[in-house]
Structures are given as structure tokens and as C-alpha cells.
């Protein structure tokens, strides 16, 4: 007998058999296609505007730049000596932070998923409680700055955000839903608890781990709030925060002149405008666009993983 999987065709509903089902499918595709187009169009406009010169912008946004110009990119790179350094900080923040976070969270989730674990209920409540209630900004600030002494170090980006309770819950549910016979058989083969975790629980939760890792990576890459509160050294600015500051600075340059009782010597007319914003957007999202396809195959399976049982 042949035990390979049955040919998938047999499991699919016969195509175009029912007219109603077919047309609703096409409608669905049309809606999705439209949705995709809306998103693609926005992306296209962002890229197009980022390649338009400031002078041309007065005529509004165009599908194609009237004249191709790298002005905004030149301005960005010329005015930000720290941009490569910031990319580096972002990479460390996002990669190291995510790696550590996934390691800590998966171990935590594994412990919570084992029914024999004594403190399981207490710890689950502890996690759940912090999902609902938070201490607020000021106490966190006091703790981090005055007691943990993490202020203005790279660790403030990595350590306090290591455990995302929502992600822990997601991983726990996944690990709980693995057949217990797998754990039992590993145990019978003489595997220690660590061995079971590393060789059974982790590989089988790969889709969930990838999902959590990707969300963590994206969240860390895009985070500008944590560095705003806790980082003052220019050498520790991640890219998002650096760009955020630069945009504000241009706005500030304008405000400053507005409020100044004396005339200013700064020529605001030379400062790039929307094109700069768009160029910065392209600069920051670019690395994430490269990373996304790597995760995608896990991601599609993983997103629903928390809700599945059995």
C-alpha cells in the first residue's frame, strides 16, 4: 500500500461546479485585489514622492515624478552622519532583542504549558495580570533609571521589553496543544526536561515561534518611544528614532523662527518637505521589507496558531 498523502486535488471542492460558490469566490478575490491595490498604490506614491524635488511638490503628488530627483535622499544622508550607526543600533536592538526575547519567552511558555508544574496557575495569573494592568510610565522610569541603572545604555532597549505577555500566552497555548504522547515518548526514551523542551517542544512550535519573532522584530525595529524616554546619547539612537527626531527638527526649525523675536538666519525655503518624509519612510521600511519574505512561510501558518487546538 502507498502511504503517501492523497493527491490534494481530491480534497478540494470541484471548481465551478456551483455557480453561486464560484461567483462569491470571485467577489472575494476582487475585494482582496482591490485591497492589495490600495496598499500598493500608497506604497507607490510614497516612493514616487520621495523621488520628487521640493520645487516640484507645489503642484501636488504625482504617480510618476515629473523629474527624477534624489534630493530628499541626498539631504537625509548628508544631514545624518549617524545613519549607519543608527542602522547598527536598530539591528542589535531588533535582532539581539528578539533572539533573547524568544529564548526567554519560549522557556517560560514551556514551563507554563506543563500540567505537572506546581507554580503554573500562580505564574499564569502573574502574566495575565500584567496584560491587564501596568504600573505606568513614571514608576517604570524610576525603576529603570534609579534602581536598575539602565538609562542611556543599549540594555534599556533589550531587557525591559524581553517578555511580552501576549506572546507568552500564544506560545503556551501552542505548546499545550501538542499531543502529550510526544512528550511521554521522549520521556520514556530518557530525555530530561531540558531535552524535551529543546528537541520536542521548540521544533514543533516553530510556526508560533516564527510569528512571535517576526512581531517582536517588527515592533522593535519600529519602536521610537523607548529610546525617546531612555536614551540621550546620539550613538545609541536607533534608526526610527533618529529619523523621527530629524523630521521634528525640521518642524522645529520652522517653529523656532516663528517664535523667535529676532529674525533668523536660517533659510527654511531650502529645507525639503513631504519628499523628505517619504524618503525617510522608504529608508526605514526597506530592511523590514527584505526580512518579511524569510518569515512569510511560517507566518501564514502561524498567525492562527494560537486559536487552534488539537
Amino acid at each position: 500500500m502507498d502511504y503517501t498523502a492523497p493527491p490534494p486535488e481530491t480534497t478540494r471542492p470541484a471548481r465551478r461546479s456551483g455557480g453561486r460558490e464560484g461567483s462569491s469566490l470571485w467577489l472575494m478575490y476582487a475585494i482582496l485585489l482591490l485591497f492589495a491595490l490600495v496598499i500598493l498604490f500608497s506604497f507607490w506614491i510614497i516612493i514616487s514622492v520621495s523621488l520628487t524635488s521640493t520645487a516640484e511638490l507645489r503642484y501636488g503628488f504625482r504617480i510618476l515624478p515629473p523629474r527624477f530627483s534624489l534630493e530628499a535622499y541626498q539631504y537625509t544622508f548628508a544631514n545624518m552622519k549617524g545613519i549607519w550607526n543608527a542602522y547598527g543600533v536598530s539591528a542589535v536592538y531588533a535582532l539581539l532583542g528578539t533572539l533573547l526575547a524568544v529564548a526567554v519567552m519560549s522557556a517560560f511558555a514551556y514551563a507554563l504549558s506543563r500540567p505537572r508544574f506546581q507554580a503554573r496557575r500562580g505564574l499564569t495569573f502573574y502574566v495575565f495580570f500584567t496584560m491587564l494592568f501596568s504600573g505606568g510610565l513614571t514608576p517604570s522610569y524610576i525603576l529603570i533609571k534609579q534602581y536598575l541603572k539602565l538609562y542611556d545604555t543599549i540594555w534599556v532597549l533589550i531587557l525591559p521589553g524581553l517578555v511580552n505577555c501576549w506572546h507568552v500566552m500564544m506560545l503556551r497555548t501552542t505548546m499545550q496543544s501538542l499531543p502529550s504522547s510526544l512528550y511521554d515518548s521522549a520521556r520514556i526514551d530518557g530525555a530530561s526536561e531540558y531535552r524535551v523542551f529543546v528537541s520536542v517542544a521548540l521544533p514543533l512550535s516553530a510556526p508560533a515561534l516564527a510569528t512571535v519573532a517576526f512581531m517582536g522584530l517588527l515592533g522593535r525595529w519600529n519602536d521610537w518611544y523607548t529610546p525617546m524616554i531612555y536614551i540621550t546619547k546620539n550613538s545609541l539612537f536607533p534608526i526610527q528614532y533618529l529619523l523621527q527626531r530629524m523630521l521634528n527638527n525640521i518642524q522645529e526649525a520652522m517653529n523656532m523662527i516663528e517664535f523667535s523675536p529676532f529674525a533668523s538666519s536660517v533659510d527654511v525655503s531650502k529645507l525639503p518637505r513631504e519628499n523628505l518624509r517619504m524618503a525617510m519612510m522608504v529608508i526605514t521600511i526597506f530592511p523590514m521589507m527584505l526580512v518579511f519574505p524569510l518569515f512569510q512561510r511560517f507566518f501564514i501558518r502561524g498567525i492562527t496558531v494560537g486559536s487552534m487546538k488539537g
Binding site: 523662527i257 529674525a263 533668523s264 538666519s265 533659510d267 525655503s269
Partner: peptide
């Protein structure tokens, strides 16, 4: 000094 400011700004 408003004219100077206007010139610089606008």
C-alpha cells in the same frame, strides 16, 4: 524686524 523675518522664512 518683521520684514527681515518674512524674507528669511518665506
Amino acid at each position: 524686524g518683521g520684514e527681515v523675518e518674512f524674507k528669511n522664512r518665506r
